[in-house]
């Protein structure tokens, strides 16, 4: 049995814990023994991107220490992976931390062992859809014959930094879900971490363009591997009084596993399904 540590991301922990619970269920159904390194908080990407590297480095050290901690109960010698629930955060740890490490190496208090710990953590870290594509398939209960159509929004870091742009679509297709392709699908949604707060006007103009393209597919739900993009887009839907089912991939796979993937079920399942007057 593979032991899998979950790296949930701060947004899932604080705002969308249901995604974390769904991921646990999904991974356990595929035979994983799921652990949760409880020292984890945030990868520090928001601070890193905004240029606040001392803060980013403090958070990176805390995350590396947490993810590198020895496994809590479990026989020795087991194969071990860490699965992240955000393509952007996984990209941060795998692809951006080396740059942060290079910078930290010139700062007081530097300890070379961080490079070793990073190599260990990054070497076994996967984004959820990457892991699902190589995991044993679960006995899926998805038997509804009516076509369920979702539109997939792939975050820019997942697509371009992690180079895992096709993985989520492959997972969805494996479940028999039809995936709609929106116009300008590789265009940024305007989230950009703290960019969404610093430049709300441009960020929102981008969200509106993205939502127009996503909504035009008339899909039953919008799915992504990043709650950053989803909270930004969903938060915009909410503010403009539009109800739509917005879900993380983990939740969609969980619904498929449970045979609850009919369009009507899907339309009720996500965040932002209730219209706020």
């Amino acid at each position: 049995m593979e032991r899998v540590d979950l790296f949930v991301s701060c947004l899932v922990d604080l705002f969308e814990p249901e995604t974390g619970r769904a991921a646990v269920a999904v991974m356990e159904r595929r035979g994983a023994q799921v652990g949760f390194p409880s020292g984890q908080t945030c990868c520090g990407q928001f601070a890193y991107n905004a240029g606040h590297w001392p803060e980013a480095w403090a958070m990176a050290k805390a995350l590396l220490a947490a993810l590198d901690a020895p496994p809590t109960p479990g026989p020795d010698g087991q194969e071990r992976a860490t699965v992240g629930l955000s393509g952007s955060c996984v990209a941060m740890v795998r692809e951006e931390y080396p740059k942060l490490l290079d910078w930290a190496a010139g700062q007081p208090g530097w300890d070379t062992s961080w490079r070793v710990r990073h190599a260990r953590v990054a070497g076994r870290l996967w984004e959820l859809s990457q892991w699902l594509n190589r995991a044993a398939p679960a006995p899926s209960a998805h038997q509804d014959t009516r076509p369920t159509r979702v539109v997939l929004h792939t975050g820019c870091h997942m697509r371009r930094v992690l180079a895992a742009g096709g993985d989520a679509a492959a997972v969805l297709e494996g479940l028999g879900v039809s995936v709609a392709t929106p116009e300008d699908e590789d265009q940024c949604c305007g989230f950009g971490g703290t960019y969404a707060m610093n430049e709300p006007k441009i960020s929102t103009a981008l969200a509106d363009d993205k939502l127009r393209a996503l909504r035009a597919t008339q899909a039953d739900a919008m799915v992504s591997c990043d709650w950053g993009c989803l909270l930004h887009l969903g938060g915009r839907l909410s503010r403009t009084g539009v109800a739509w089912s917005v879900l993380h991939l983990a939740q969609l796979v969980d619904l498929a596993d449970r045979g609850e993937l009919a369009p009507a079920q899907l339309a009720r399942a996500g965040r932002f399904v209730r219209e706020v007057p």
């Binding site: 604080l14 969308e16 929102t204 938060g235 503010r239 706020v276």
Partner: peptide, 13 residues
């Protein structure tokens, strides 16, 4: 604050 000029957020769970 900038976020909430144009968007909502779910509360902390």
């Amino acid at each position: 604050a900038g976020w909430f000029e144009t968007r909502d957020m779910p509360p902390i769970a």
